[in-house]
């Protein structure tokens, strides 16, 4: 079952284990420059607001009502990262426009291990984008669906789904008991906007960021695929979000240039777990900046390179990467 609490999706599996809970929220962040340089992790600037689709059903397109789930507002070219929390191990599949963000393959509910198409929490504290090569992702950046920028459109040639799709599977109780005893040993050692598609956003591949997607250390049989919970996260264009829900979306985040000039921190995360290889499908995507030039002949706005001077090292015991601006 999934609850929406304080703008976070709380997945609980009481039928599997009383502790089987994981929380997923969507963090506002700055868009890193899309210039093929490798950037560290940008900060979290607070959660995106999340609403039940059913609460605004009369003002939303039929397809959104059909999908169910929730919605978040994003400005065009705004970036986001997905934040995972919880101590009970879970396998999480994430797709953007029903394109798997780890493998680049089309959506399926089941977990795949050849190649691995999911992340494992708590080992994986967050996911900032598409897995384009080993140790690198391309940032999730919102773009209107139907203009050819999103990963979904680049791979399938169609603008059909948009948004984000998530399914979570908890670890099987017997595997969890083994995990817990192993962990213990380690610790001891240490308005009706016309119901058109204009409001619908998808995620395009933005700038290149240093981030590993970690290999599943427990094996695919550790996950209880009989008890998954899934959610469709629609992305509403911020310009129409206010008209739908009657509340303003958060203000636009600062540009990477302004944020860096203000002397605010970027982050670098270190963990010893082995990283997955990048997806050749996702690696072949055209990044947003290149696509904008290809389509308009003009450069992407606010895309000046930056040189982050203040990069805070973080590790698995301290995964706070909040910024204020």
């Amino acid at each position: 079952m999934i609850e929406l609490i304080n703008n976070a999706l709380v997945f609980r599996f009481p039928e599997v284990h009383s502790e089987a809970t994981c929380t997923i929220d969507f963090q506002r962040t700055l868009r890193i420059p899309d210039d093929n340089r490798e950037y560290p992790l940008p900060p979290g600037l607070g959660r995106f607001p999340v609403e039940h689709v059913d609460d605004f059903a009369d003002r939303l397109p039929e397809s959104w009502r059909q999908h169910g789930g929730v919605m978040i507002p994003m400005y065009q070219s705004e970036a986001m990262w997905i934040n995972f929390s919880g101590d009970y191990p879970c396998a999480v599949k994430i797709a953007a426009g029903k394109i798997n963000a780890v493998s680049g393959n089309a959506w399926t509910n089941e977990l795949g291990n050849n190649p691995q198409d999911y992340v494992v929490i708590p080992d994986q504290p967050w996911l900032d984008g598409f897995n384009v090569s080993e140790g690198h992702i391309r940032q999730f950046v919102a773009m209107p669906l139907g203009e050819g920028y999103t990963a979904e459109e680049q791979i399938t040639g169609e603008a059909q789904h948009g948004g984000l799709q998530i399914i979570v599977y908890p670890m099987k109780p017997e595997a969890y008991e083994q995990y817990r005893s192993r962990k213990q040993m380690v610790v001891e050692d240490l308005c009706c906007y016309s119901l058109s598609m204009d409001m619908d956003m998808g995620l395009a591949p933005g700038g290149l960021m240093k981030q590993k997607i970690y290999e599943d250390e427990y094996g695919i049989d550790s996950w209880d695929q009989e008890h998954g919970s899934r959610c469709f996260v629609h992305i509403a264009n911020s310009a129409v979000y206010e008209a739908i829900v009657g509340r303003r979306p958060p203000h636009e985040p600062p540009t990477a240039e302004k944020y860096t000039a203000a002397g605010l921190p970027w982050f670098d995360y270190y963990a010893e777990t082995k990283a997955l290889e990048g997806s050749s499908i996702l690696g072949g995507l055209t990044s947003l900046a290149a696509k904008v030039i290809e389509k308009t002949g003009k450069p992407l706005h606010d895309n000046a390179p930056v040189d982050p001077k203040l990069v805070k090292q973080i590790h698995s015991k301290n995964t706070v990467r909040e910024g204020e601006f």
Partner: peptide, 10 residues
């Protein structure tokens, strides 16, 4: 009483 996020057809 808990309100669940409704999953639909996709």
């Amino acid at each position: 009483v808990v309100r669940e996020v409704r999953d639909g057809d996709w």
